[in-house]
Amino acid sequence: MFDTVAVVGASGAVGQIIRQLLEERKFTAKKFRFLASARSAGQKLTFNGEEYTFEELTHDAFEGVDLVIASTPDDIAAEYLPSAVKAGCKVIDESGYFRMKEDVALVIPEINPQDALNAKGIIASPNCSTTQMVVALKPLHDFSPITRVICSTYQATSGAGVQGTADLHQGSQAFLNNESYEYKAFSHPIAFNAIPQIGSEKEDGYTSEELKMVYETRKIMGLPNLKVSTTCVRIPVANCHSETITVETESPISPEKARELFAAFPGITVMDNLKNGEYPLPSTCDGSDEVFVGRIRKDISCDNGLSFWCVSDNLRKGAATNAVQIAELLSENL
């Protein structure tokens, strides 16, 4: 058990879920602290039935803290988390800033727990769309090594923050009322639309979000040469990311075997009955910590191909839950 745990970004959307999960999962520590921006500092919150006060995030705020769970924008993480490391804290970081740095572990506990246990300083949690995909890839790869991955994502507006969801709700209402609406989180209307760009333009016509999935997948799985191609699309769904995933493996995996492998893997739930219209939907997976898979079928375009559909709550397993699971792993191995 850690003596003192600090949640950084505790008043934000993911920070609120981290607090909720620490309560739900009965994560134990002798003391909790909740750090936030100057705007939130001084406000009260209730945690485990007790009243706490948000403290302002400063470089000196980490003294006496053993574990930091941080969910902040990249620039805030870059500025403040090195101070936590200097103060001797273990740090779990939800931002994207440290993920691909060579000396930083990038961890999904079901996939590479030892990397977290061996880490010095900062442990990064992956991008939300990467997390659910890699969880689904792992049991297949363990059975027959994966040689190629093609993934298209259908990402919820909550992945663009509170303003993204506000744009969906208010933009939809404006559309139905035949009124104009000025979108703030998106460069195109999201209501009744699909935007095939998430992130900035990068090399070879890919976006930053797409390349995150490529590079993070390779790092987490320890497969630096794995062939991965992604297309990331924002759709008018409030929460839960969906993905179509096609893999090629060294030897064929039948749909029946894939269902068996998925079902036996921790953190995966199989919903796969096409005849009865049973498969994962964002509306039914919302609020869950699981990764859901369905529509499992042979890829008829190649000999060793398998295709499936994957849905997960991007604010939970894609962010807060993964961070809390890393914290649990560290606590259990003190």
Rank of each mutant, 00 (worst) to 15 (best):
F2P: 00
F2R: 00
D3Q: 13
T4D: 10
T4G: 09
V8P: 01
G9C: 03
R19N: 04
R19C: 05
Q20E: 08
L22H: 01
K26H: 15
K26Y: 13
K26F: 11
F27G: 00
K30L: 14
K30I: 10
L35S: 03
A36N: 08
A38K: 15
A38H: 10
R39H: 15
R39W: 11
R39S: 13
S40W: 01
T46Q: 14
T46N: 11
T46F: 12
E51I: 09
E55Y: 10
E56Q: 15
L57C: 07
D66R: 07
L67M: 07
A70D: 03
A70Y: 03
S71P: 05
D74F: 11
D75Y: 15
Y80Q: 06
A84H: 04
A84I: 05
V91Y: 01
S95I: 13
G96C: 14
E110M: 07
I111Y: 05
I111S: 05
Q114R: 08
Q114T: 11
A116K: 05
L117T: 04
L117V: 06
I122W: 01
S125M: 02
N127H: 14
C128A: 14
S129V: 11
Q132Y: 01
M133T: 03
A136R: 03
L137G: 04
L140D: 05
H141S: 14
H141F: 15
H141L: 12
S144N: 12
P145G: 13
R148V: 10
R148C: 13
V149F: 04
V149H: 02
C151M: 15
S152D: 08
T153D: 04
T153F: 07
T157C: 12
T157L: 05
S158D: 03
S172P: 07
A174V: 08
E179L: 11
S180G: 11
I190S: 02
I190L: 04
P196S: 11
I198R: 05
S200D: 14
S200M: 12
G205A: 12
Y206A: 09
E210N: 09
K212T: 11
T217S: 14
R218H: 13
R218K: 15
K219P: 04
L223I: 10
L223N: 09
P224V: 12
P224N: 13
N225L: 13
N225P: 05
L226G: 14
K227A: 13
C232G: 06
V233Y: 04
I235H: 00
N239M: 03
N239L: 02
T244V: 12
V247I: 13
V247H: 03
E248H: 12
E248W: 12
E250R: 11
P255V: 02
P255M: 06
E256Q: 13
E256Y: 09
R259Y: 07
E260H: 08
A263M: 07
F265W: 08
M271C: 03
N273A: 10
N276F: 08
Y279S: 01
Y279K: 03
Y279T: 00
P280D: 04
T284L: 06
G287N: 07
D289V: 01
V293F: 02
G294K: 02
R297D: 09
D303T: 13
F308A: 04
F308K: 02
V311G: 00
S312W: 00
L315K: 04
L315C: 08
A319F: 07
N322S: 09
N322A: 06
E328M: 06
L330D: 03
